Amino acid sequence: MSYPPENRKGSYVFIFWAIFNLGGVIGSLIPLGQNIHRENATSVADGTYIAFLILTVVGACLASTLLPVSKVRRVDGTKVIHQKNPTFKTEMIQLGKTLWREPWMLLLFPMFFASNWFYTYEQSDFAAPNFNVRSRSLNSLLFWLMQMIGAYLIGLLLDYNKLSRKSRGMIGWVILFCITHIIWGCGYRFDKAHPRDSGLTPMDFKDSSFIGPMFLYMFYGFYDAIFQCYAYWVLGALTNSSRKLAIYAGWYKGIQSAGAAIAWAVDDQKKLPQLRRI
């Protein structure tokens, strides 16, 4: 959020999101390859977890190659504003000041809180009961690929220099509002006919009934990318200071994770099917 020049904030979010979701693509390809011929498999093989651990170790090693912020220069040659080694106390004080002086961060709370809430439904209520292992692996692969496409398209819009930043922000919000109702409206229609607690028979990708739910799951991924990338762009549009953006990002990810934790807890108590019937 703090490294890109003004006219490439959307593109940088897309680059981050594409790399971020490449892990999901690889993580889906492995179990898909292992289970492509195992129609009745009920769990993934040990190789899936071994590959995950290997990638985690490689990622940790790659982190040591990051350039210190003080040496980073944007493409136009400008420096990135940063603060060296802030303490926990100064971080919390700065967060308090930010929320007091910039009340719009509080107004963004609902968006941040909801930004990972839908993962619980997508993974536990939709994917797990409706598809067998190899079909879930295929769906997962398509889900993460659609994330990249969604991030690319919203990045193009948010960097469209023939429109003002305000116009791009408003158009992005309208698009997000519309696809929320379209995609999740389709999901609601599907869920009414396939409630999780009705003893569903998992579908296989060879079944004729698989195509529609597959595309629905793909567009869940597309929607997630639009939602998340738009949120990052909004934060990045507020300032170029890496110090302040660190506060913004911490607030965003903290609220996001709290919302996700609550969603999983509610799902664990079997409340979501009851709420859907209401």
Results as ranks from 00 to 15, higher is better:
Thr120Ser: 04
Trp264Gln: 14
Lys206Val: 13
Gly250Tyr: 11
Tyr160His: 14
His37Gly: 05
Lys271Phe: 09
Thr201Glu: 15
Ile19Cys: 15
Gly169Thr: 09
Arg8Trp: 05
Leu200Trp: 05
Pro103His: 06
Pro68Lys: 03
Lys166Thr: 13
Arg134Val: 11
Val174Asp: 03
Lys89Pro: 01
Tyr3Asn: 15
Leu29Thr: 08
Ile36Asp: 10
Leu163Glu: 14
Ser124Tyr: 10
Asp207Tyr: 09
Gly259Ala: 07
Ile247Cys: 01
Phe222Tyr: 13
Ser241Val: 09
Phe190Trp: 13
Asp46Arg: 06
Tyr121Leu: 05
Asn7Thr: 11
Met111Val: 12
Thr90His: 08
Gly27Asp: 00
Leu163Lys: 15
Val57Pro: 07
Ala18Ser: 12
Lys270Ile: 09
Tyr3Ser: 13
Ser241Gly: 07
Val72Gln: 11
Leu55Lys: 04
Thr87Leu: 04
Gly187Ala: 14
Val174Ile: 15
Ser43Trp: 05
Gly250Asn: 09
His82Arg: 00
Gly77Ala: 07
Gln274His: 09
Gly33Thr: 04
Gly150Trp: 01
Trp117His: 00
Ala128Lys: 13
Leu216Cys: 02
Ile278Asp: 01
Lys97Trp: 05
Ala60Glu: 04
Glu91Cys: 11
Asn40Cys: 01
Gly10Gln: 04
Thr56Ala: 14
Ile26Asp: 06
Phe20Trp: 11
Gly259Asn: 08
Tyr160Ala: 07
Lys166Ala: 10
Phe126Ser: 02
Phe215Asn: 02
Val174Asn: 06
Gln123Ala: 12
Glu122Thr: 14
Arg74Glu: 11
Trp264Lys: 10
Tyr230Lys: 02
Ala249Leu: 14
Tyr248Leu: 03
Asn35Tyr: 04
Trp233Ser: 02
Thr120Gly: 01
Gln228Ala: 08
Ser198Glu: 12
Ile182Ala: 05
Asp197Pro: 02
Met111Pro: 00
Lys71Ser: 10
Tyr230Gln: 02
Pro129Met: 08
Pro86Gly: 03
Arg168Asn: 09
Tyr49Gly: 08
Trp17Pro: 07
Ile15Glu: 12
Ile182Thr: 06
Arg38Phe: 03
Ala263Val: 05
Tyr12Gly: 02
Met111Asp: 09
Lys166Gly: 01
Leu235Phe: 08
Lys253Trp: 11
Lys79Trp: 01
Phe14Ala: 11
Phe190Glu: 07
Asp267Ala: 14
Leu235Ile: 05
Asp204Ala: 15
Gly47Arg: 10
Thr56Arg: 11
Ile175Gln: 03
Ile149Gln: 06
Gly24Ala: 08
Pro31Leu: 08
Ala60Met: 15
Leu145Lys: 00
Thr48Ala: 13
Asp159Arg: 06
Ala60His: 05
Met92Val: 13
Val266Tyr: 03
Thr78Trp: 02
Thr180Asp: 02
Gly212Cys: 00
